[in-house]
Design a protein around this nucleic acid. Sequence first.
DNA 1: CGGCTGACTCTGG
DNA 2: TCCAGAGCCAGCC
Length: 108
Amino acid sequence: MLPQDPERSLYQRIYDVVRHVPSGRVTTYGRVARIVGGISAQMVGFALAALPNRPDGADVPWQRVINAQGRVSPHGYGFGTVIQKELLEGEGIVFDAEGRVDLEQFGW
DNA sequence: CGGCTGACTCTGG
DNA sequence: TCCAGAGCCAGCC
């Protein structure tokens, strides 16, 4: 399997990986970073942060990407986090009392 | 072309 | 559980 097209920008490749996350499952920034290869977890976070600005991110299930602690990172003005949790619960993801997800169970 | 920005991870206390 | 510091790198003015 050839590596992803170098023509595509890094962001595009990250979105590609995120799009592969099935409904009802979540993955972490670090995990996506390793799949894409050669980038740090931060790059994934930045790529998702730019999603609203990029037409290529229209169909990217960004809500399925959380941090390594199984938590939803505080982003946006604080509202995006709530939305993300709602979306995940709608897909069957369960949060514990502390708002964490069991990656052992729901991790991709 | 220089500088700023950012939704992370890991380790240690 | 919370907090701080260091490493990380592409994209956008």
